[in-house]
Amino acid sequence: MRTLLRRLAQVIVVLVVVTFFTAMLTDLLPGDPATTIAPFATEEQRDEIREALGLDKSLVPRYLDWAGNFFTGDMGEYYAGAGVKGDDVFARAKDSVPRSLLLVLYVQVLTLLFAIPLGVLTAYKAGSTFDRSANGIVFALVALPTFVFAAILKFWLGVRLDLLPTIGYVSPGLSLVEHMKTMAMPVIVITVGQVAIYSRLLRSDMVATLQEDFILMAKAKGIPNRRILWRHALRPSSLTLLTVAGLNIGALIGGALIVERIFTTGGLGSQIFDAINRRQYVPLQSFIAIVAVLYVAVNFFVDILYRVLDPRIRNV
């Protein structure tokens, strides 16, 4: 219970700092929303817009306005003009968050599915031809630029074989099959870049673990190698992998930007990018706050998992 409360306090601190830092950073960017909304206008007209939208205020009061709304459950709206109402941030978030979360979930699962066996086996056969060729293949895939790989997949799976749609997103509620079809290519494209990182990290820890006394002892006892690898060695070796997988949440959510644009699947990456470019401070801060909450929540579970996986960690 105390841990939970402490965590909650931590979440709020993280949120405030993250969003305030975002506000500061965007304030430093040249250009403002009023000019973006009204490029063809006189400076007086723009001043009216600034006043109507509260953009004439300086950084701190503007931030407090946002924070006051956000922490009472109002994510705000886009700046649209002097009179008209902009898009509701909550509505866009409600649309984008599931897309991003599902994408990240599929990518993580698929990546681990490939990376764990690959990491374990390459560690076991460290230095072998298998290790080296696996290494070569995964790095070749890392070096292949995302959009090149996406274009190749689109050409074959989308145009030639006509198996998968090349654009758009269907929510699982609407049609699970169509959902999987729209997500397939984006997930594959991102996964390919992740497998190398995850499997190499696991391999590196695993190689170290396999030199440990308790493994040698287990071997001496005549426990089969397979059992040693999967039962004894994997668990304590997965620490770095787990850390990175947890930390990667923020990176995957935002890093999906390129893939989201190529496949027009939408998601938080595109929303944040769009908000930065249009200097939409209110939605930007709200979206960053959402990513921060998701990120902290996931890593809270990762911390718990640490303890489960490696009982040696006591006073974290």
């Binding site: 931590q10 601190v13 993280v14 700092v17 993250v18 830092f21 975002t22 950073l25 965007t26 430093l28 960017l29 930390l247 923020g250 990176a251 959510i253 935002g254 890093g255 930007l257 390129i258 938080l268 990456g269 944040i272 990018f273 930065i276 960053i288 990513v291 921060a292 990120y295 902290v296 890593n299 006073n315 974290v316």
Partner: peptide, 30 residues
């Protein structure tokens, strides 16, 4: 560990909560 660890971890958390590509893009612009 302890307090120092908690404070420092919070700082990483804060930095990591930013999507890195987007943060890098913004930093270069700024």
């Amino acid at each position: 560990g302890g307090k120092i660890g908690a404070v420092l971890s919070s700082i990483f958390d804060i930095l990591l909560a930013f999507p890195p590509l987007l943060l890098a893009l913004t930093l270069v612009s700024v």
